[in-house]
């Protein structure tokens, strides 16, 4: 299973992971349009947390026993048995935010001004390397196959 590993000792807190995550999950896939024009604003599913000198990027850890899946009222959140990924179906999501309450990593995002439907890391399943990893300038994020 592929997973994102976080090396906080090399995280420089630039936030490019968030920038490229947002673009990857936009309609246009264009930096300037995604930020300056698209409505509703695309959400970054990775969150940079900073308490200098410590900083690191947090995204869904795709837990083996995910509390968000147990807590989800509508069945929008489920664990895919083949890939082992926790996947979210926005069409089923009712925006109750229970998953946010139970996620121990605060890895679930919401657009409070929009529909209220949540969003989370999908490991950029269409890309060879997730956007945040590919664009981390200091290799503080690494994508690896893990057991």
């Amino acid at each position: 299973m592929r997973r994102i590993l976080v090396f906080e000792e090399y995280c420089i807190g630039c936030g490019l992971c968030e920038v490229y995550c947002r673009v990857q999950h936009s309609q246009s896939k264009d930096l300037i349009k995604a930020y300056n024009r698209e409505q509703p604003k695309p959400l970054s599913r990775v969150k940079l947390v900073k308490a200098k000198p410590v900083s690191f990027a947090v995204q869904c850890r795709h837990c083996k026993d995910p509390p968000c899946v147990t807590a989800c009222l509508s069945g929008a959140m489920r664990r895919d048995n083949d890939s082992g990924l926790v996947v979210h179906d926005p069409d089923k999501c009712i925006g109750c935010w229970t998953c946010i309450m139970v996620c121990p990593y605060t890895a679930i995002s919401i657009n409070v001004l929009g529909s209220g439907v949540v969003a989370k890391c999908d490991l950029c399943s269409t890309l060879d390397t997730p956007a945040c990893v590919a664009n981390c300038p200091n290799e503080a994020l690494v994508c690896e196959e893990v057991l």
Binding site: G13, C14, V19
Partner: peptide, 13 residues
């Protein structure tokens, strides 16, 4: 400012 996306990477770098 047409290109700036206010991502603040310059600010933090």
């Amino acid at each position: 400012h047409e290109r700036c996306i206010r991502c603040k990477v310059c600010v933090n770098q």
